[in-house]
């Protein structure tokens, strides 16, 4: 396949940036999108040019490093697929493909397609953990978890923190990420103890960086892990309850 790639190039956070057009020839349809970028980058390096900076790590859809905006869709055209698992067969020979970094005020562009997602770390630090004494592990079977609860918690725990939900949201809201990270803990007995304190802290931190949800549903459509917006409703309800239950300890 031959592809025309319009890629966002930006030397650093304070650089203006702009699109550059590249011809990428002899692309195999079995290559992943990132492998196509690798091929282009090798050529750019040989030509003495700067390769296009992008993030990736696992390349199997589990680390969340690789997200970019492809033809106006977060992680590209295929549903439930991270950029590293998107294959070039999703495109036609001769296509022009536009790649851009995630855009949100809280996601500053570091270079080319790489953005700073550390606002997510601030949300996790606020409550995305359980407070337990370390040491000898308690007997696991002492804490029964109904299968259905475990399944729901696991659906939320599938979040890889990629940021596609924010990138796809016209409001740059981080509700889906925050809801997934709060509920996968809050649904289980170990995390349930701190449910309301966690929700209040995580939501308040989220709102320092991100926009407000208007229920477009774009996040759910973009999420490579198909996390449901039902978790957002659960978080909203817990936040209201938290305001009644928490007594100034949040």
């Amino acid at each position: 396949m031959n592809i025309t790639l319009r890629a966002w190039r930006q030397a650093g956070p304070s650089d203006e940036g702009g699109f550059e057009t590249y011809q990428v020839s002899d692309v195999s349809s079995d290559m992943s999108f990132l492998e196509m970028l690798d091929v282009l980058n090798e050529r750019l390096t040989l030509e003495g040019l700067e390769p296009i900076a992008f993030d990736s790590d696992c390349r199997e859809g589990i680390c969340g490093a690789c997200g970019v905006m492809i033809n106006g869709r977060a992680h590209g055209p295929q549903a439930a697929t991270a950029t590293c698992q998107l294959h070039m067969r999703s495109f036609e020979d001769g296509d022009t493909i536009t790649v851009e970094p995630w855009r949100a005020a809280a996601f500053a562009v570091i270079r080319d397609l790489v953005v700073d997602r550390s606002a997510f770390d601030r949300i996790i630090e606020a409550g995305g953990f359980i407070t337990v004494a370390t040491g000898s592990a308690p007997e696991a079977n002492l804490t029964p978890v109904p299968k259905e609860t475990a399944e729901t918690a696991f659906d939320a725990a599938a979040c890889i923190g990629c940021g596609a939900c924010v990138a796809a949201c016209p409001n740059s809201a981080a509700q889906l990420f925050t809801a997934a990270k709060a509920s996968h803990l809050s649904l289980l007995p170990q995390g349930g103890a701190e449910r309301y304190v966690r929700t209040e802290r995580m939501v308040d931190t989220m709102e320092r960086f991100f926009g407000s949800c208007t229920n477009h549903g774009e996040c759910e459509a973009a999420c490579p892990k198909q996390i449901s917006i039902d978790f957002i409703a659960m978080m909203n309800r817990d936040y209201v309850k938290a305001k009644v239950k928490n007594r100034g300890n949040a």
């Binding site: 699109f19 409001n171 809201a173 208007t214 477009h216 459509a221």
Partner: peptide, 29 residues
Amino acid sequence: SLTLLNRRANTAYRGPRDLAVASYASRTM
């Protein structure tokens, strides 16, 4: 006030934008 918050939080894409599911109604509230 939420509209203003969202304006501050959002940065526009420079390339095309292809919304997947947002309805005409939700975009024009």
